[in-house]
């Protein structure tokens, strides 16, 4: 089952510079595990130590943000396109306070 995955600039060090790679899996979680077997370390940049999706990245399946599709449990089908983008955020506020305010800490999202 082939799924095309678009890799942002900041993570292309893991893919030998490739902008897009192919992976397999019936959920986002399985796909990331498959990718990590070929591009070691990639998964660790997307998943926190607690096992949730990292706050600093956005992952999309086709045209949907996976946060609305069950996060790591999002279902994947052959031919789906997965896009990874760095989240663009920041501001004058302290990070811990900002994360608390948003109710989406760096802890697991699910």
């Amino acid at each position: 089952m082939a799924i095309e995955v678009r890799i942002p600039t900041i993570l292309r060090t893991y893919t030998g510079g490739a902008k897009s790679v192919e992976g397999a899996g019936d959920t986002l979680s399985a796909l990331l595990t498959d990718l990590d077997s070929k591009y070691s370390g990639l998964r660790g940049r997307l998943i926190t130590e607690q096992g949730g999706l990292h706050r600093f990245v956005n992952i999309y399946v086709n045209d949907e943000d996976v946060r609305f599709l069950g996060s790591l449990d999002a279902k994947l089908n052959d031919g789906d396109n997965v896009t990874i983008l760095p989240a663009v955020a920041g501001g004058a506020f302290g990070f811990a306070a900002a994360a608390a305010l948003l109710g989406r800490s760096t802890a697991p999202v699910s």
Binding site: D65, A87, F93, A98, L102
Partner: peptide, 20 residues
């Protein structure tokens, strides 16, 4: 998307559209 005086965040769907 945060509409805050101390924080900013791109709307994830708008970002996908613009990055594409």
């Amino acid at each position: 998307a945060a509409r805050s005086m101390t924080f900013y965040e791109f709307d994830s769907m708008e970002q996908l559209r613009v990055w594409r």
